[in-house]
Design a binder for these strands. Structure first.
Length: 432
RNA sequence: GUGGCUGUAGCUCAGCUGGUUAGAGCGCCGGUUUGUGGCACCGGAGGUCGGCGGUUCAAGUCCGCUCAGCCACCCCA
């Protein structure tokens, strides 16, 4: 039998790695819940049309990065992002009619058939929030503050919020023409990708990294100077909201989102420690998506954090508290001979029932090797059960931190005794 | 889809201009301790050198193809 590998761009997460994922995810959840967001879970697979409609037919994600699943007459797709599903669920439950303003968060895997690279996989976890049913400019500021506070809670360093406004659809249509007028005379000097972008998505020309494209980019008109008065005002209100919360940010006219549903505020959180693509979070307002999805004209805003890029950044940074790896054991119950194995198994179970993290040997190891296992698993205490202990109804307890031995009666006080011992950090000294 | 780099023990890697039984560190198992971990010392297991083909008396080493991974471009969290 030949061994099979996981699909390209997907990976098995061994327990220590899962701990790191949870570290990021739990920091995010604490902040989101603390701000009144509640978890929503939607299917990982959706009708393909949901994404085509909300992301835009001509986006790369829809055109070439979708994992599709044919099923009878319909075509399903593995979700490439979370917003479309949340909006669908919101409308599906008629929340737009009963309680229009809703704040959700989600945390789960997304799928895009891209070429894997640093911080980028084909299956990747995203943590995000969606605040539906309000057009308040302050809500944009709140959402950005939640993202920033999440990163602070993870003890991430060296990250920066970059904000821009792309106005409403009228502003965009107008600015699209302004940009084309600017770029048309210099199109021949632009890179091949930009020539395609000129027709398909002029805005993308603004964040082209090719050196030859920089001069005409620097001279390019700014979106912010071409916004309508009302759009400009609401952007200023959002920025004032960030100021009021003391959130640091940079207004960056180069921030452009990839999906069609964005309006007004768009933002990224960037951290250069990730690699070439430094965004660890992207988001913004989408005031027309609810309506375009068959609902009323209600505004919405949100973001998604890329868990993998965050982990890449965290692992490159030196920090006061190390990222969690494997958890450690409270107690290991060792059996001296095979005759005490069942008894050890029983004692371990009593400890577990009492909330003590406990393990026993399952490999028929000799006592010495059992101690090694205990040590490797980070056990604080080892209980030794041998013929003598069984005969006298007692057990030996060794504190691995001090190398100290105790002999105690094996009675109904076992769990309490062990727990007291675990909480006692003052006994003995570190004699290693 | 395009380009660059890398594939040698479980992991990280060394193997000079092709030359006898392919190495190290860490990890693993055992011993020094008839019932006691971490440290030290000793010993052991573990590799069809990514795969296929070619050149050669001889290939881990050279050539071709292929697969995989990583990084970068496009795009995006």
């Amino acid at each position: 039998m030949s061994r099979l590998e996981p699909p390209k761009g997907m990976e098995d997460l061994l327990p220590a790695e899962v701990s790191r994922y949870r570290y990021v995810s739990e920091a995010f959840r604490r902040v989101a819940e603390g701000a009144g967001y509640r978890e929503i879970r939607t299917p990982i697979v959706e009708d393909l049309r949901l994404f085509v409609r909300s992301l835009g037919e001509v986006t790369d994600v829809v055109q070439k990065e979708m994992f599709t699943v044919p099923r009878n007459e319909e075509t399903l797709a593995l979700r490439p992002e979370g917003t479309a599903s949340v909006v669908r669920a919101y409308l599906g439950a008629n929340l737009d009619k009963s309680r229009p303003f809703q704040k959700f968060y989600y945390d789960g895997p997304m799928f895009r058939a891209e070429q894997p690279q640093a911080g980028r996989r084909r299956q990747f976890d995203q943590c995000g929030v969606e605040a539906l049913g309000s057009s308040s400019p302050l809500l944009d500021a709140e959402v950005m503050a939640v993202a920033m506070r999440s990163f602070a809670g993870m003890e991430l360093q060296n990250f920066e919020l970059r904000v821009n406004s792309i106005g409403d659809h009228q502003d965009r249509d107008r600015f699209r023409e302004v940009l084309r007028e600017h770029f048309r005379p210099v199109l021949a000097e632009r890179c091949d990708d930009c020539k395609v972008r000129f027709e398909r998505n002029v805005f993308r020309m603004l964040d082209c990294k090719v050196a030859g494209c920089q001069p005409s980019n620097r001279a390019a008109p700014h979106f912010l100077d071409n916004l309508s008065d009302t759009s400009r005002t609401r952007f200023d209100q959002t920025l004032a909201g960030l100021d009021a919360l003391g959130v640091d940010y940079t207004v960056d006219p180069g921030i452009v989102r990839g999906f069609d549903y964005y309006t007004h505020t768009v933002f990224e959180v960037q951290c250069p420690d990730v690699g070439a693509r430094s965004a660890i979070c992207g988001g913004g307002r989408y005031d027309t998506l609810i309506h375009e999805s068959g609902g009323p004209e209600l505004g919405a805003t949100g973001f998604a954090i890329g868990v993998i890029p965050v982990l890449v950044a965290l692992s490159k940074q030196t920090r006061s508290t190390p990222l969690p790896g494997d958890p450690s054991l409270d107690v290991f119950v060792a059996a001296v001979t095979d005759d005490e194995r069942v008894r050890a198994f029983q004692v371990a179970d009593r400890l577990r029932a009492g909330g003590v993290v406990t393990d026993v040997d399952h490999e028929q190891k000799k006592l010495k090797a059992q101690f090694k296992s205990a040590d490797r698993q980070g056990a604080r205490l080892v209980i030794v059960l041998g013929p003598e202990e069984v005969a006298s109804g007692s057990f030996k307890l060794r504190d691995l931190r001090h190398g100290e031995d105790l002999e105690l009666p094996d009675d109904e006080q076992l769990v309490a005794t062990v727990r007291a011992r675990l909480h006692d950090t003052t006994t003995g000294g570190d004699q290693r």
